[in-house]
């Protein structure tokens, strides 16, 4: 029986069964929605009550894993991060993220962005391989240097920015906001020395110069990463480098060992409560 806080909402779902459907089609499922219910909760309810074969991808339910990116009421969002009530509509239209092939129902094929992401060398590139394999200490970095890339490191690779980008919509060769933003995340890290190698990857039609600042990627990013800003700052870096105005500094060195004397009033650690077998 419906409580006073429940509301009847129609989930308007884009369905596609490979091998059975020639084209995706829409299907309506009516469910009772309670306050605080997310779109992801709604999908589980639809699956439980009326569409057992409905497929989507989700995992953490708290906006961390980036699995449940979907087109919800015309906007790319995380299903777990979107409450039905905030949509302000009795109809919740859910479709797979556009600009990605559909594997089934609401499951997009995200492999192309992961492949492009890998091409951007998204890790610290340095010569001291031995130190990286077997670290002695951390690399030195100031809070100000950290701020230069911290925002971009919050990316969860959900693909919402790629679904919103109008350039990605027409240009399959364009790398897109997620991989480019992550390339800049490492280019602006003072511990990294891979700018020249990434510049070679970024040259050409697939690089940042295809971005003309529609700004949609930043508007829809569920983590506030602002890929559009990263891409513009990357362009500034590339132009500065071309004009030889970019300051080239060696990557941050390993921090020195702390010096001074050890305090003698630090209590000893308690004995282990669990012993290894």
């Amino acid at each position: 029986m419906a409580g006073s806080n429940t509301k009847q909402v129609t989930f308007h779902l884009r369905r596609f069964e490979p091998g059975k459907d020639a084209e995706p089609h829409w299907e309506d499922h009516s469910i009772e929605v309670t306050p605080g219910m997310t779109v992801l909760d709604g999908l589980w309810k639809v699956k439980e009550l009326s569409a057992p074969s409905l497929a989507w991808r989700s995992s953490c339910r708290m906006g961390i894993c980036g699995s449940c990116g979907m087109l919800i009421n015309g906007r790319p969002r995380l299903a777990c991060n979107t409450q039905v009530s905030e949509l302000g509509s009795a109809i919740v239209a859910v479709a797979p993220l556009p600009n990605f092939d559909i594997i089934k129902d609401l499951v997009p094929d995200l492999r192309p962005i992961f492949e492009t992401h890998r091409e951007m060398l998204p890790y610290l590139l340095r010569d001291d391989t031995a130190e990286q394999e077997d670290p002695t200490r951390e690399y030195r970095q100031t809070p100000h240097e950290l701020e230069q890339y911290l925002q971009f490191s919050y990316c969860i690779k959900c693909g919402c920015c790629m679904a919103a980008c109008p350039t990605v919509a027409t240009d399959a060769q364009y790398a897109g906001p997620m991989p480019l933003g992550q390339a800049h995340r490492y280019d602006s890290d003072t511990r990294d020395a891979g700018f020249d190698r990434r510049r070679e990857v970024l040259a050409g039609g697939s690089g940042p110069w295809r971005c003309h600042f529609a700004g949609e990627c930043s508007q829809v990013c569920p983590k506030g990463v602002d890929p559009a800003k990263a891409i513009q700052l990357m362009k500034r870096q590339l132009v500065s480098d071309l004009l030889r105005l970019r300051r080239r500094t060696p990557p941050a060195a390993v921090a020195e060992a702390p010096h001074g004397t050890m305090r003698d009033d630090i209590p000893a650690a308690p004995p282990r409560t669990v012993t290894e077998a």
Partner: peptide, 29 residues
């Protein structure tokens, strides 16, 4: 690029398919 599922790229519709965010998309178009 090899298609791995049902194609879902927006194409030209993607230029005007937004509109619920900022007007920069329309300036882009």
């Amino acid at each position: 690029m090899q298609t791995r599922g049902h194609p879902n790229r927006l194409g030209i519709r993607g230029w005007v398919g937004g509109g619920r965010w900022g007007f920069e998309r329309y300036m882009y178009t």
